[in-house]
Design a binder for these strands. Sequence first.
RNA 1: GGCUCCGUGGCCAAGUGGCUAAGGCAGCGGAUUGCAAAUCCGCCAUCACCGGUUCGAAUCCGGUCGGAGCCUCCA
Length: 511
Amino acid sequence: MIRVYNTLSKQKEDFQPLEEGKVGIYLCGPTVYDKSHIGHMVGPIIFDTIKRYLTYSGYEVTLVVNITDVDDKLIMKSRERGIPMDAIAEEMTDDYLSNLASLGVDQIDHMPKATESMGEIIQFTQDLIDKGFAYAVDGDVFFDVNADQDYGKLSNRTAAAAQGEGGEAASRKKSASDFALWKSAKDDEPSWDSPWGKGRPGWHIECSAMSRRILGESFEIHGGGLDLVFPHHENELAQSECCHGKPLVKYWMHNGLMRAGGASGKVGGRSDRQDDDSETQATVETKISRSKGAGGLADLIETHGGERIRFFLLRTHYRSTIVFSEEGLQEAGTALESFYRLFERYKRLTGNCFYDLTPAPLREDHSESNNDSEFVQQINAHRQSYLNHMDDDFNTGGATSDLFDLVRTINRFADQNDLEQSCSDEQQVALTAAVKTLRNLSAILGIFSAPSVDSAGSDELTGQLMELMIALRAEARANKNFEIADRIRDGLSELGITIEDRKDGTGWRVG
RNA sequence: GGCUCCGUGGCCAAGUGGCUAAGGCAGCGGAUUGCAAAUCCGCCAUCACCGGUUCGAAUCCGGUCGGAGCCUCCA
């Protein structure tokens, strides 16, 4: 039984879809007014993983991630740069999509855009007016918070305590906590025709309208960053539930936010964009680490590779705060090495490539057999532990530890049976079954789908040169001329190449 | 001020009532190796602090200290 932490009830609940076997997930995506930073990737990566796991568990899953391509920040950006809003939206959407691709996020089924959903948004707004939950004033439409008995249940606050001064539109609102469903446009702003005049949607209404179109009036999971609980999700919930008279979603899931190492405040958060008036030494240091974290995600992917970043994020439970640091990413990279070495070892022993193994699509029954060897039993135990971790609110941090256990168990099997000396057909079968388990389980996390491409110096000439160097060194070693042999190894080491003398021959790698 | 959440070994990080507190990185000892590298084996924590509940708590309750998020745009 899968269990899910629900922000609404503040506890873990048994996962039970509304309709047997089907799951709808709506994840709040970015407002595309600027390039994405690493913090924007936490949600997509965890929900991509959640969909993979639910699919593996037999559910038919629809994952929706919206793109907000009209809002105040986009309009400001458009003025700043002197180009149309839709050009900025397109540029930043492309940036977002390419980042997702680099990080192996490929499970998204729909990416609706606000500007392509105006009809539904206007209809939704009209529905709320008709039902008495919203009112139009001078071209604006506001949601009437006091008409909603349940308002505040997600973020645990009352309507009165909800929203401060009411902003610039305060004078037209019935109550300061009322929020805009439709905003009238000034002359030079992008706008769409509506029954209330030219204008654009408020921030929250697009999600209500688009989720209704694609997933229906009620669906299973709504996700987003913890910072969206209020006001975004609170308001979205209010709109949809007042409109439909039933729960919008069964499970509200919120991922923790990322912090820059040494700094306070989340990556890309408000403090990042504020002009600091107090230039103490501490804030200067903070800015440096910030610029690393919140700076170009594309650069980060360039230097570390998507797999390392994805693994780094998934090692922590999705509800925790992740502190971003260059060192943390480095360490994740070191940890991944043991997997890559096992894949190479597997290939040497069996001739098969890890990446060519096809991951099992479904979580099949592994009924315990008494005939199983100790090795097979250990592998199954690790597999079961992995599934238990994932069943428990998608505990990817715990699950990765089972992956390391699998690696150690497989290496131990190879060591103890001296497979480098001889590997029987039977042993090859056992080895492949175990490696395949690793393949299946890592595929759920979205890692190891293809060889990591960060290995430099893998061109043909280098390979031939290395073959020559290794042959020369082997000759020297055979003649017990260790001085020469070590000179070769040390020299290569200075060039960043590591030599490994294994029982079945000498290998080399960059790094 | 209101509302959430967190504090586990040198660092990262699972575990949230009961066998010897996962796993990773770093370190140390051993096997292996000509020496290394890789791999394997072993070692390294009583869970911020105080008090309470309980046969039994890192895990529940209260308090103290420390940290984070939201209450304003935000993944």
